[in-house]
Amino acid sequence: MSDENIENNLNESEINLDEEDEDDELITPQELLEKIEIAWINEKSAPDILEYQGELVDLMMGQIVHMEENLQSIPSNDLRKTVHKMELERIKYIIASYLRCRLQKLEDFTQYMIEEEKKRPLNKKRLSEAELKFAEDYHESIETHFHQLALQHLPPQQDDISKRIIRPNVMGHVFVKVLKPCGTIVNTKDEEVDLSENSIHLLPYQLIAELLNKGDICLI
């Protein structure tokens, strides 16, 4: 394959991506990466689990596979190979860290997460199928373990599962950066906070959860 061909191949990913994403606005790989980075940082900073960005992750994984296939045809002493590989490693790290962070939250607040997820309407689900399955399996094994270890020796009325639920602190303070101006909100001390563009605030998570979900603000 000539050099030009390889370049065209590497470029092709952009076109593919646009086709896959018909119903949404067109997105370049660059924008996709930026969105994933934001999702990653938000997830790391938020006390509760956020909506799973499955579409972004799937698209990016597709990009990575595509790029890796193309790289195989490039000789290993080519600069492009090293550079692309380095970038792929960086992106993979972000995605892995994003997923790991979600799993950590599922492990920490298993029962709470499962119950909340059940309450959410179908279009507002936050966990992916695999994550929900993981949470349920994890919950089951922890319960079995507790039961075998101690709970079976307690009088049944002492074993109230609702007392064992661990909840994330949704009133925990987070640093917020405003991306689009969104008026003012009232904080816990009854003061008005002006959410002007690019301003940074420290607010309880619950107050800004809705704005975060809309993408008008991001966490830092």
């Binding site: 925990g172 303070h173 987070v174 640093f175 904080n187 690019n198 940074i200 420290l202 309880p204």
Partner: peptide
């Protein structure tokens, strides 16, 4: 309201281990 606007990410994270947690504890 204390303004954190224009703080860099690095500086925010330097306040991180202390400030939000202390506020959470007070709350």
């Amino acid at each position: 309201q204390v303004s954190f606007t224009n703080l860099t990410t690095f500086e925010i994270h330097s306040a991180r281990p202390f400030l939000p947690y202390a506020l959470d504890l007070v709350a």
